[in-house]
Write a protein that binds this DNA or RNA. Sequence first.
DNA 1: CTGTTAGCGCTTTCAA
DNA 2: TTGAAAGCGCTAACAG
Lengths: 350, 350
Amino acid sequence: MSRQNDNPPSRRPTINDIAEKCGLSRATVARALSGKGYVKPQRKALIHETAAGMGYRISTIARALRTQKTATVGVLIADITNPIFPEIVKGIDEVLTAAGNTLFLCNTDENQQKQQNIVRSLLERQVDGLILVSQSISEETLALLQDGPPCVFVNRQPEQLPGDYIGPDNDQGVRQLLEHLYGLGHRRIAYMGGPQTSSTARERQRCFQREMQRLGCKIPPTFIIEGSYHSDSGRSGAAALLACDLPPTAILAANDFVALDTIAFLHQRGMRVPEDISVTGFDDTFKPAFDGLNALRNQGLTSIDQPKRELGRLAGEALLKRIANPLLPVSEKILPTTLKVRETTGPAKK
Amino acid sequence: MSRQNDNPPSRRPTINDIAEKCGLSRATVARALSGKGYVKPQRKALIHETAAGMGYRISTIARALRTQKTATVGVLIADITNPIFPEIVKGIDEVLTAAGNTLFLCNTDENQQKQQNIVRSLLERQVDGLILVSQSISEETLALLQDGPPCVFVNRQPEQLPGDYIGPDNDQGVRQLLEHLYGLGHRRIAYMGGPQTSSTARERQRCFQREMQRLGCKIPPTFIIEGSYHSDSGRSGAAALLACDLPPTAILAANDFVALDTIAFLHQRGMRVPEDISVTGFDDTFKPAFDGLNALRNQGLTSIDQPKRELGRLAGEALLKRIANPLLPVSEKILPTTLKVRETTGPAKK
DNA sequence: CTGTTAGCGCTTTCAA
DNA sequence: TTGAAAGCGCTAACAG
C-alpha cells in the first residue's frame, strides 16, 4: 500500500501544484480557472477536475496584488446599533455582494479619530471603493480620501470632495411633520436636537427653521434645543422650554430616540402625550415594534419613514458604476419620505 | 523653473520609491517602517519623514501575501436587520478592531447556499478567523471549514467542528419566563415557534418542553406551533390553538418578533393581551422603544434580555486567543439571561 | 546595523 | 492554443 497523502502537512494547493499535476504551465491553469483566454476544452476540464480534487482555492490576495483590484468595499457607518443603519447597510450589501464584492463594515461611533483610522486602514487594504453613511468628515480624513478610490456618500456629503450622493429628503420629512402638526392646530412648535455630533440632527434643524418660516410660525430662541435629553444642555434647555410663559404645544424631535427620551422627560414632569403636548420622531426606527403594539393598543410614535433599504441599494449601484468608470459625472439622488401618523400627536391644547 | 511633480501620473509610492529616494535598500526601509529590526535612529527618522512626505501607505495585501496573515476576520450573521445581531456584532467589533483587525461582515439570510458562498469567499480572502453567529451550518459549509482558519461560534455550535462557543443560557431564559407565568397562575402554556430555519427557535422549543415538564405542566401536542404567523403552518396552528376546548392562557413566543405578530393575530381574533391571554417574547429586542413608551403609558412586551454586547466581546476575545494559539483547548461560555416583566403578561384568566 | 536575495500566488504580455 | 518570463509590494533569512 502506498501512502496516499504525502503532502508536506497541509499547505493550500496553489496554481503551481495544479500545473505540475496536470503537466501544464501555470499560465494555462490560470487561464482555465479564470475563464479568461483560450484553453483547449479537454485540458480545461482536466484542470478544473484536479483543482476540485485538490481542494484548490484561489488566493484573492495574490490576485489583488497582481491586478490591483480587491473586490472589496469599505462601508463607514456611525453605529451599527442604531436601527436605522442596518437597513441601509442591508441595501448596500444586497447589490454589492451580488456583484462579487465583500464588505468591510466599520463603526466610526461619530468619532473623527476613529473615522480617520478606519479610512486609513481601508486604504491600506486597497478597497475598490468606499461608502460613507452619515459621516461628517474631518479635515484629516478628507486629505486621506483625496487621492483614494471612488466614494459614495449617503445622508451627508462633504462639499470639498467629489462623489455620488444619495439621501432622504429631510426637507420634505420636516414639512410633512409640520403640516401634520399645523393641521392639528399647533403653532408653537419646538425643535429638540440630537447630540452635537449628529449631522442629520443639525440638518433637520435647518429644515425646521426654514419650514416654520414658510408656515408663518415664529420660533422663539428657547424653542431650539441643542443636545438631547441625555446631555446637560439638552435637559436644561428642555426644562427652560416648559418653564416658558407660552410653552410649545408640540415638539419635533431630531429622531426617534430623542423623541422617546423627550416623552420620558415630559412624563416625569407630569405631562401627558399627546393630550398636553404632541411629540414627533424621525426615521421610523421602531416600525416593527409599533406595528405589533398598535395591534395591541393603539400606541406608537408619529414619525417620518424613509426608504432606507433603497437608499442603500442606490448607494451600492452608484458605487459600482463609479468603480466601472471613475470619470462619470457625479450623481445625486434625493429620495422621498413618508409621514407615519401614530398616537403621540393630537390636537393642540390651546 | 523645474517641474516639481514629474511622477508618472499618480501611482501609490511603494517601499522601493522610498528606498531609492533615501539611498537605502528596501529592506532597511521596511524595517524602519514596520518597527521590527534595527535601524540607525537617524536613518529611521529620515525614512519616516520621506514616507510621510510622499504619502506612502503600506500595501497590506502585499504584506498579507508574504506573511500569510491578513488581519482580517469574517463574521457571519443571519440578518443585520434583526436588532439582536448588531449588538453582538458591535461587541465583536470592539475587541477585534482594537486588536488591529478589520471585519468582513456578511449576511447569510438563514440561507445555506449563501452561507456556503460567503464562507468560500472568506476563505479565498484568507481571513485569519471566522465568527459564526446563530448559524446552522450545512454539510458543504462544514467541509469548507474543515481545514480553514479558527472558528468561534455564537448562539449555535455544530457538533462536528471544533471551535470555541459563546451563547446565552436559553434554558435559564425559558425557565425565568415560565416561572413568571406559573407564578401568575398559568398552567396551560403554548409555544409559538419561529420560522423553521431558526435554530434558536428550535432550541428554545426544547427548553420549553424540558422546563414545562419540570414544572409538572402537560403540553398538548397542539400547544407546540412551528412556524411563525407569517407562515401558513403558523397561522393554522395558531387558529387551532384558539379553537381548543381548553385553549392556553399564555403563549411563550420564540422571540420578540414572533411575540408581536402573535399579539397582532390575537387582537384580530378579538382577544385582549394580557387580560384574555398573556404573551412573552425573547431577546428584548425593542428595549429602547419600550423604555420610552413605558414612560408614556405602561406598555411593553415581557421578554428575556441577554448580554448581547458581552456575547460579542467574548467571541472576539476567544477568537484572538485562538488565532494566537490554535492549539488551545476549545472553551465554552454560557451567559446568564434576565427577565424583563412588562405589560403583556398578567394573571391567568380563570 | 544594513544590503542581497528569494519568493508569497497570481496575471499578463509576448513569442512560439 | 500554450509557455516563458516578469513582476505586483512586501518580508525574512542570511551574510556581511
